[in-house]
Amino acid sequence: MDEEVTLMDWGNAIVKEIRKGQDGYVTHLAGVLHLEGSVKTTKLKLTWLPDISELVTLSFVEFDYLISKKKLKEDEDFLDVLNPCTKKETVALGDSNLRSLKHGEILQLERKGYFRCDVPFMRPSRPTVLFAIPDGRQQTGSK
């Protein structure tokens, strides 16, 4: 093991042990602080949330191009180049501060990108829906 990681807004640490549940998700990390390590040179950056009931369930929604090529030939039928997957949804957990988002509000999530709130927090059983705002640098699924 002994992999150095950056704990966002904290510093570096050396991971000594990783435990995973039956589903394959990490359930436990153990390590030692290595604050003299370089935040700029570590490859792995970790962000975490506390295990509290106030966390917000999120649904990140990303849209892709409807047509999978930039330009159609004159005799080409657009139905032949329709992108079969133009919407991708990812479920995540977010900080309790996201409960105060209002419809249409724009925010930046660290290491994820910019989003517009489509469905604000209403109750814990219903996810807050955030639409990704493309920045022109991200690759789309059709490429």
Rank of each mutant, 00 (worst) to 15 (best):
H34I: 04
G21T: 02
E36H: 05
G21P: 10
T41W: 09
I18D: 00
W48R: 09
T47E: 10
S38A: 13
K45H: 13
H34G: 09
Y25V: 09
H28C: 10
K40P: 05
Y25S: 12
K16G: 02
V39I: 11
R19F: 07
L46S: 09
L35H: 02
G11I: 05
E17D: 12
T42H: 01
K20Y: 09
V32A: 12
A30L: 06
H34N: 15
W10E: 13
D23Q: 14
T27E: 13
G11L: 11
A30N: 03
L44W: 08
K45Y: 00
T47A: 14
W48S: 15
K16L: 11
K43R: 11
G37S: 05
T41K: 13
I14H: 00
E36V: 11
G11K: 02
I14W: 04
I18V: 15
I14N: 00
H34W: 05
I18H: 01
T41F: 11
K16C: 02
T42Y: 04
K20C: 10
E36P: 01
A30I: 08
V26C: 14
I18T: 13
E17C: 05
G24S: 03
H28G: 06
T27I: 13
E36F: 07
V15S: 01
H28E: 15
K45T: 04
V26Y: 13
L33S: 09
K40V: 13
L29D: 01
T42M: 04
S38W: 08
R19E: 15
I18W: 10
K40I: 07
T27G: 00
K16D: 07
G21D: 12
D23A: 11
G37Y: 05
N12S: 11
V32Q: 12
Q22R: 09
D23W: 14
T41L: 05
E17L: 11
S38M: 02
R19S: 08
G31A: 03
Y25A: 08
V15R: 00
W10H: 13
L33H: 09
R19W: 13
A30E: 04
T27S: 10
T42E: 04
Y25L: 15
L33R: 12
L44I: 15
Q22N: 09
L35I: 02
I14D: 04
L46P: 02
L46T: 10
H34Y: 09
K20S: 14
G31F: 10
V39G: 00
G37F: 06
T42G: 02
W10Y: 13
Q22W: 03
S38F: 08
H28W: 14
T47N: 01
Q22H: 06
K43F: 05
G31D: 06
Q22K: 11
A13H: 00
W48L: 15
H28Y: 15
K43W: 03
L46K: 04
G21M: 12
G21K: 13
E36C: 04
G11C: 13
R19I: 06
T27P: 00
V32K: 14
Y25T: 12
G24Y: 14
T47M: 14
V15E: 00
L49F: 08
L33F: 06
